[in-house]
């Protein structure tokens, strides 16, 4: 089977590179974008299985990207994990409402991130979803 493809959207080049290495080591194919505008363009071109999205971005922040994805007939079904340094108290509900599947704050535990990626790519309902438990 093909490797699942993940689109990384982050404006910080080091963070993109680090996450890219981590995901490739975990046998994912990756693509990346550094701003909101190219995030949509890359999503259209690459048709990823999953998008990992930062919120603070130039040329359309994460909320704009979520909104555009939701409006697009072809991209709305791609699951999005928000990974941001921003305060969960004000952003978690807002991003989930805007269409994201999960919200993680940076720096996120690697195990937790991988768990969330796996459950997002292979949702198992109900009862056995390995929702990210604290302490993993």
């Amino acid at each position: 089977m093909d490797k699942p493809k993940i689109l990384i959207v982050d404006d910080d080049p080091d963070l993109r590179r680090g996450l890219n290495l981590r995901l490739r080591a975990s046998h994912f194919e990756t693509a990346y974008a550094a701003d909101g505008f190219s995030a949509i363009a890359m999503a259209q071109k690459e048709r990823p299985d999953l998008i990992i999205l930062d919120i603070g971005l130039p040329a359309g922040d994460g909320f704009v990207v979520l909104d555009r994805l939701q409006q697009s007939a072809t991209l709305a079904s791609i699951p999005v994990i928000v990974l941001t340094a921003r305060d969960p108290q004000y952003n978690r509900e807002r991003t989930l409402k805007a269409g994201a599947c999960a919200f993680l704050q940076k720096p996120a535990d690697n195990n937790e991130l991988m768990d969330v990626i796996r459950t997002t790519l292979n949702p198992v309902w109900p009862g056995t979803a390995a929702a990210a438990l604290p302490g993993h």
């Binding site: 910080d12 080091d14 963070l15 340094a85 940076k106 720096p107």
Partner: peptide, 10 residues
Amino acid sequence: RTPLTCIHQF
């Protein structure tokens, strides 16, 4: 958090 994330990551 951003530089800290970088240290954490690498």
